[in-house]
């Protein structure tokens, strides 16, 4: 297609771009400007340069939240992606059982975070929780999933995996659908083992979806918020406070919105680097 017609192609992008610039990019830029001010919910903004940023790095609570967030993503994303991929491979077939299991897995994702945390509280709580019943059944001491500083983050990983399996699973499923049937037929003729079919046919075909899911889940899990907010309020001793909870506390509870904006910018930069740079690089320069 010619460059001249190229301009009209912009029309396809324009409607989305308009909303995107208006309701996401513009607010982001205001946030950058806000982060250079001392301000509260009701005005009173004073320009203070980079002071909010230096204040952040002196702030032990923020540093702890940063560490928690990185650790959470490092634990959560690999588990989530692996399990979702395995599920998609196992359930990519017709039949009632597979369909039912797909729906059940997805059903865990339909709950809102409020509801999901209520359900898991009933599972994890030491007093009368499902797991503590199980522990007592086998004669073990129930674990304090939500109040032991070493267990609380893994517990959040567990419930987040449970809650988030739905989307990556359906993304993998729809990617599997796009693999041409002929490839498998060829593999069948070669008497390939299931593993080598997976290794040499399925996995390469899934790579774009896999990268997409990893990038997206990284971006998403960096924004962990509702689970600790509703279950632990970041405790014990800050062990489950992620960055977004920190941002929420400073912005909405302390009304320290300039400071919260500065913390958001750091989170934003972090997500950009960790989740998107590899994607971008592939998109822009390494296109196959």
């Amino acid at each position: 297609m010619t460059e001249r017609r190229g301009w009209t192609h912009l029309l396809f992008v324009l409607p989305f771009l308009a909303v995107y610039l208006w309701l996401l990019v513009y607010p982001l830029l205001t946030g950058v400007s806000l982060s250079l001010h001392r301000a509260n919910l009701f005005g009173g903004a004073t320009f203070i340069g980079l002071e909010n940023y230096t204040r952040l790095f002196r702030d032990a609570t923020f540093r702890q939240a940063l560490g928690n967030t990185v650790l959470f993503v490092a634990l959560c994303v690999p588990v989530l992606v692996t399990v979702a991929l395995a599920l998609a491979l196992a359930l990519n077939r017709a039949g009632r059982f597979a369909a039912a299991l797909r729906s059940i897995v997805f059903a865990s994702s339909v709950l809102s975070v409020t509801v999901m945390t209520i359900v898991w509280r009933q599972v994890l709580t030491v007093d009368g929780g499902l797991l503590s019943h199980v522990a007592q059944g086998v004669g073990a001491r129930p674990l304090a999933f939500l109040s032991d500083p070493h267990l609380v983050l893994p517990s959040l990983v567990l419930i987040t995996v449970w809650w988030s399996l739905g989307l990556p699973m359906i993304l993998f499923l729809s990617a599997l659908q796009q693999i041409p049937r002929s490839v498998y037929e060829a593999a069948a003729l070669d008497r390939a083992t299931p593993w080598s079919v997976f290794r040499h046919v399925t996995l390469p075909a899934l790579t774009p979806a896999l990268l997409l899911v990893i990038a997206y889940e990284c971006a998403l899990q960096f924004q962990l918020f509702g689970q600790p907010q509703l279950l632990t309020q970041g405790g014990p001793n800050g062990a489950s406070r992620p960055m977004v909870l920190y941002i929420y506390e400073t912005g909405f509870n302390h009304w320290d919105v300039g400071y919260a904006a500065a913390a958001s910018q750091i989170l934003f930069a972090l997500i950009l680097v960790v989740a998107l740079v590899p994607q971008l690089a592939r998109r822009l320069w390494g296109r196959a």
Partner: peptide, 20 residues
């Protein structure tokens, strides 16, 4: 432009909600 759009994935809701 596509890079600009992808960048949006990294924006936490909490940081834009006040301006919105």
């Amino acid at each position: 432009l596509y890079a600009l759009v992808l960048m949006g994935l990294a924006i936490p809701d909490q940081s834009v909600i006040l301006t919105r």
